[in-house]
Computed example of a mutant assay.
Amino acid sequence: MIKLRNYILIGLLLILSCSTNNINELEDENPSGEELYFPPIDANTWENKSVSELDWNENQLQPLLDYLEDKNSKSFMILHNGKIVVESYFDGHTDSSPWYWASAGKTLTTAIVGIAENEGLISINNKVSDYLGTNWTSANLEKENLITCKNLLSMNSGLDDSLGDNVSSENLQYIADAGTRWAYHNVYVKLQDVIAHASNQSWTSYFNSKLKNRIGMTGAWIQNNDFNVYWSTTRSMARFGLLVSNNGKWNTDQIIPSSYLDNAVNTSQNLNEAYGYMWWLNGKSTYRLPQSQIQFNGELIPNAPADLFCALGRDDQKIYIVPSENLVVIRMGAAADNVNFALSDFDNQLWLRINALIN
């Protein structure tokens, strides 16, 4: 009788063990039940799926593309579970044409900072002067030493954002204590200097080996006045969006630490709840915009899903990521309407048309 009880106990433990493993597997599985696709690293081939396969509204695709063309777009892509559903080019642009990311490329710096921290090269909670030395700003030493790497990621360095794009020390002047004022500022590029110093190699070399080459991106950092701007094909931008949409993992290769990335795509400070580590966040009750100290009520992009987060660049360069829909959406081009630094009405109007397609 005792032996029988032991066998039953062992059997129950085995069943429980198998059940637990299945639960873990389900938790790791894509919410749609479909395995996430990653294009080859060493080729420009990319699997597709059709609008009809997804049961989307095919009659809404052409109006969406017409709108994009009318709004000075160069390219547009929609990925679903990693596969291309829509890929369109306008105005002579092709899948091999490079275009600038503008400030959407800030998120590339975000990714590299997380990688460097994971390697033990830096800590985002350390002050910037630990890596660059003192007098990298014009603030006095006490105020300069308040500025951490995290302040640069979160855009609350307290440095004066009204003095232009130049990030030389004489142009980085104190206006408020770090952490007390949110302002969109190009001082974030100092993080690239931090990485170069900490890794003992150039920013480009570290970026290429730790991110670009590992996910098959093309492109290059091009000097534009006082800072680097990333240029690449639309598909390379989509590769980065796909990586981030999968919590920083490419296939089985964890490239950006998932815990760091989770912090990056959530509110990073208490001044602008729609801002993470250079990622913009939808679904919040208030937001602030570049070159303004006004707090606006409502969501960043009311027509977009609440869980959307995005990289936004000058002249409407866009990476939209929607976890609940397994979507990555890319737009490159000239300004849709007027020149802007990040958000414009184009975002909301574009999502009105995307919704008509996918719902």
Score class of each variant (00 low, 15 high):
residue 217 M to D: 09
residue 213 N to S: 12
residue 290 P to W: 03
residue 232 S to Y: 10
residue 223 Q to F: 05
residue 306 A to D: 04
residue 213 N to Y: 12
residue 273 E to Y: 08
residue 288 R to I: 01
residue 205 S to H: 11
residue 307 D to Q: 11
residue 221 W to V: 00
residue 265 V to I: 15
residue 299 E to P: 01
residue 223 Q to I: 13
residue 243 L to N: 03
residue 206 Y to G: 02
residue 261 L to V: 09
residue 307 D to H: 14
residue 223 Q to S: 13
residue 234 T to D: 01
residue 286 T to D: 09
residue 276 G to D: 00
residue 268 S to W: 05
residue 300 L to E: 04
residue 246 N to H: 13
residue 281 L to M: 06
residue 216 G to Q: 05
residue 279 W to N: 10
residue 300 L to G: 01
residue 277 Y to V: 08
residue 238 A to L: 07
residue 277 Y to H: 12
residue 301 I to E: 01
residue 222 I to V: 15
residue 301 I to F: 00
residue 296 F to I: 04
residue 209 S to V: 13
residue 202 S to C: 12
residue 268 S to A: 15
residue 232 S to W: 10
residue 276 G to M: 04
residue 251 N to K: 15
residue 245 S to Y: 07
residue 261 L to E: 00
residue 256 I to H: 09
residue 262 D to G: 02
residue 230 Y to D: 00
residue 296 F to M: 04
residue 210 K to E: 00
residue 255 I to A: 01
residue 204 T to W: 09
residue 290 P to F: 00
residue 306 A to S: 15
residue 243 L to H: 06
residue 283 G to T: 02
residue 225 N to P: 05
residue 231 W to K: 01
residue 292 S to C: 08
residue 253 D to P: 11
residue 279 W to S: 05
residue 268 S to I: 11
residue 274 A to S: 15
residue 228 N to G: 07
residue 260 Y to Q: 05
residue 202 S to H: 08
